[in-house]
Amino acid sequence: MVDLGNYNELEIAREVDFGVYLTSEDGDILLPRKYIPEGAKVGDKVRVFVYRDSEDRVIATNLTPYATVREFACLTCKDSTPFGAFLDWGLEKDLLVPLHNQKEKMRPGHKYCVYIYLDETSDRIVGTTKLGKYLHNEDAGTDLTENQEVDLLVAGFTEIGIKVIINNSYMGMLYKNEVFQELRMGDKVKGYIKALRPDDKIDVTLRAPGTTGQGESSDAADKILGVLQKAKGYLPLSDSSSPDDIYRIMGMSKKTFKKAIGSLYKAGKIEIAEDHIRLPSDEEQV
C-alpha cells in the first residue's frame, strides 16, 4: 500500500510521452517526465515522494518537501482563504491548513509551526496549528532521560523563552537567559534534556552536560558585543542595573551579564560606567 505523504520505493512499469507510471498496490502512479531520475528505465525502482496534485490525483515527484506526513514543520503562509490557508512546503502544490485546524487565522507572509497528517475522512494531506493532540509529554519519561541529546525544532517564542519540538514528539522550553545564539522559527539544532518536570513540562538546554560556565560566559560576551555594535557602541546597562532590566534587554541573568562584561573589560573590549557600558573609541583602542 502506498504511504501517501511520504517516500516510497516504486518500480517503473511503463513509459508514456509525459512521464512514466510507477506500479503500486493502489494502482499505477504517474511520475511526470521532469521528475524522472537521469538514466532511470522500465524495471528500475525509484525513491519518490507521493502526494495529491492540484487536481486531487495521486502523483509522484522527486522534489523534497520540507516535511512529510507525521512530522512537525515551520512553514510560511502563501495565501489565506475563507476555507483555509496554503503553506509553502517545497512542492508544486501548497499544503492546506483548513480553517478549523487554525489556532488563529493565518496571515500570508507569516511562518507557523504545523503538524502534517493524512486526514482519514478526505484522504488528503493537511496541516494543523493545533498541536496538542500530536504531542505526548505525558509519555516523555519512557523515552527521554535527563542529559540526553535530542533534536530540537524552534516552534515559537514566549516572554520566558523559546518553545521547541523535541524529537518530533514532545514540547519543550529553552529559557531565554540560557540562549546565547540567534534562533529563528524553524531552526533545527541539537540540545539536551535539562529536566523532566512533574507537570509534564520539559526543560531543555543547548549546553552539553558537564561543560563549565566558561562557555556560557563566552557566548554571553559575544552577544553583548553584538548588541553594542548594533547600538552604536552604547548600552544603558552596567553591573549595577536591575536583574529585570538586564533580562529585558539582553535575555540573560544578572550573574551571567556581570561575568561577561567583567571579562570584556579585562580584555579591553568595553568600558564600564555607573549606568552604562560602551565600546572604546578608536583612539582608546590604539
Rank of each mutant, 00 (worst) to 15 (best):
D53H: 00
L30N: 04
V20Q: 11
P37D: 00
K34S: 09
V48H: 02
L30P: 01
K34N: 11
K41N: 11
S24M: 01
D56Q: 02
P37Y: 08
E38I: 12
P37R: 05
I36M: 15
V16I: 15
L30S: 04
D44K: 01
V50P: 14
R47M: 07
P37F: 06
D44W: 08
S54Q: 07
K41Q: 12
D26Q: 06
V50Y: 12
G19F: 08
D26I: 09
K41F: 10
R47V: 09
G27F: 00
K45G: 09
Y51F: 14
I36R: 14
Y51I: 10
E55S: 10
V20T: 13
S24W: 04
E55K: 09
K41L: 11
D56R: 00
G43R: 07
G19M: 09
L30F: 13
G19W: 09
Y51M: 13
V16S: 10
A40N: 05
A40Y: 08
L22T: 01
D28Y: 00
R52E: 09
I36V: 15
P32W: 10
S54W: 05
Y35D: 07
E25R: 13
D53Y: 02
S24Q: 03
E15F: 12
P37G: 00
R14H: 14
D44P: 10
D56S: 05
R14M: 15
E38C: 07
G43C: 06
R52T: 07
S24P: 01
F49K: 10
V50G: 14
F49L: 01
